[in-house]
Simulated assay, not measured.
Amino acid sequence: MSKRWMLALAVVLTSQAQATQHKDPASGCAVSAPAYLASSDYVFSYQGVCRDGLAEGQGKAIWTLKNSPSHREEWAGRFSAGVYLPEPAQGLKARALRGDNVLFDLGPLPKLEGMSPRLAVEATSELTKYPDPCKPDTLFVLQADGPALVSDDVAKRMLSSALDKLKLRCGDDRLRERGRPGGERSHVRVRMVPQTDLEFDPYGNPKGIVVEATLPLDAGKDFSQYSNSVASQQRQRQAREERDALKQANAQRLQAFAKPTGASLWVGLNALAQNPFRYQDQIVLTAVRLNEVVAPTRARVMAVGGGYQSSFALVEGEGLAKWEPGARVLAVRVLGRLPNTDAALPAGLHLQLVGQLPCALGDCSDRLSLPNPLRDGEALP
């Protein structure tokens, strides 16, 4: 590593998070420039227009090496809020961000779906080189705020328009050049925010990113790393609405099934098995899986979702011989326990079938996914 690069790295590591401002001691006018030029080896001066202590309009910033006055860095041209504007500077604005980073405002993008976006470009200075929007770190689409962004097609068109505008300003060859080692640039990152200006959190991260992607400079290639939080949130809302509608439909279906049977309570099979006498002679709803049909009118069932502690019961009623394997919601009359003499289920839970509602899923979640979960002994929704 060369001595010059080592010095540059040391200066960058010790620089503050705020923009590096170089102030002319004579005029008090400041210019945002690389931290490298702030070393004690250079003497800074500025000639030109100044506004609120910052270089504005036409001017010239000069850094002269103390030990070699013939060697100096000179930025001559237009300035905006202390930031040097590379040519073409017409219509370009800028402001310092943090460290050696600046943000260039390149003006409006094409209006799209009621939105009036603008293009801003973040760029970084290095050593003695001024930041250049044609050597961008990130492109930002400002004022990207509208319901149409739920469409990925609209969002991608806006992202592409940002890159197209920068290509028109810089030219493809210049845009491909990197300001630092690493080879030719092939992609540019573009981010979209709803705000009129870019804002940062205390850690230097931009706030409010709604869409972002890495766009290839080669035409015809697909985006990479694309994400659209507006579309994602919309899909999540739609999914929630669909789930809520399904839960409400399940509740209505369960009520329609229970009403003619006379069932008004939900009691899980495990709770019934623990104390059937609490619900003696009542008709309740419960969910079971068929274990085996032991006789044309008798079937052995087990609790749905009971795990290793799943309880069994003997259900009696007509039509059990036609049951197929699977889960179902039952309306049953609680008869109590079988006598100890019953060989199939000694002292087991004894139920009488009143009605059944077959489930498509083994846990009956297609029937029992409700706005509010069912609880043992509570009235049906």
Rank of each mutant, 00 (worst) to 15 (best):
Lys3Met: 09
Trp5Pro: 00
Thr14Tyr: 00
Ala17Glu: 14
Ala26His: 02
Gly28Lys: 11
Ser40Gln: 04
Tyr42Cys: 05
Cys50Met: 03
Asp52Asn: 05
Lys60Ala: 14
Lys60Gly: 09
Ala61Ile: 09
Ala61Gly: 10
Ser68Ile: 06
Ser70Cys: 06
Arg72His: 15
Arg78Val: 09
Ala81Trp: 04
Gly82Arg: 04
Gly82Lys: 03
Leu85Asn: 02
Leu97Pro: 00
Leu97Thr: 00
Gly99Ala: 05
Leu103Thr: 14
Asp105Arg: 13
Leu112Cys: 04
Glu113Ser: 12
Gly114Leu: 07
Gly114Cys: 02
Ser116Val: 12
Val121Trp: 05
Ala123Phe: 08
Ser125Pro: 07
Lys129Phe: 04
Asp132Asn: 15
Pro147His: 07
Ala148Thr: 02
Leu163Met: 02
Arg174His: 14
Leu175Phe: 07
Leu175Lys: 10
Arg189Asn: 14
Val193Cys: 01
Pro202Gly: 00
Tyr203Leu: 10
Pro206Asn: 07
Lys207Pro: 01
Lys207Asn: 05
Val210Ala: 11
Leu217Lys: 12
Lys221Val: 04
Phe223Glu: 09
Tyr226His: 01
Ala231Trp: 09
Gln233His: 15
Glu241Ser: 11
Glu242Arg: 15
Arg243Gly: 03
Asp244Trp: 06
Leu246Val: 02
Ala251Met: 04
Ala258Ile: 02
Thr261Ile: 06
Val267Met: 14
Gln274Ile: 13
Pro276Trp: 03
Phe277Leu: 08
Phe277Cys: 05
Gln282Val: 06
Leu285Trp: 13
Leu290Glu: 01
Asn291Cys: 09
Asn291His: 13
Val293His: 14
Arg298Asp: 05
Ala303His: 14
Ala303Ile: 12
Gly306Gln: 14
Gly307Tyr: 07
Ser311Val: 06
Phe312Ser: 00
Gly317Ser: 08
Gly326Ser: 06
Ala327Asp: 05
Arg333Ala: 04
Val334Met: 13
Asn340Asp: 14
Gly348Gln: 12
Val354Gly: 08
Val354Tyr: 09
Gln356Ala: 15
Leu357Asp: 04
Cys359Gly: 03
Cys364Pro: 04
Asp366Phe: 09
Pro371His: 12
